[in-house]
Write a protein that binds this DNA or RNA. Structure first.
Length: 83
DNA sequence: GTTGAGCGTT
């Protein structure tokens, strides 16, 4: 279990605040970030969201996995540790 | 002015 969520299939127009705005409705978002390309500064189409608790994270997964964001159906699942 | 499975720049 983890409080970090992996969010995929994001629209190219999605930003950090778009993620936080969408996930904040289902839990306390500690941090939301869309991974952007370092060279082009454009979104890679996926991001990460961290919740206050695992319960909220799991609730957000079930609530937003497959949900529509900016016209795109997003994928939400538990993220793997960065380190 | 593009792309579409995956697991993060600083």
């Amino acid at each position: 279990m983890s409080t970090k969520l992996f969010v995929g299939s994001l629209p190219w127009s999605a930003n950090d605040e778009d993620l936080q705005n969408a996930f904040a409705a289902h839990g306390n978002v500690l941090s939301a970030k869309v991974v952007t390309d370092k060279e082009t500064r454009r979104s890679r189409g996926f991001g990460f969201v961290e919740f206050e608790t695992e319960a909220e994270a799991n609730a957000a997964i079930q609530a937003l996995n497959g949900a529509e964001l900016k016209g795109r159906n997003i994928i939400v699942s538990e993220a793997k540790p960065k380190k």
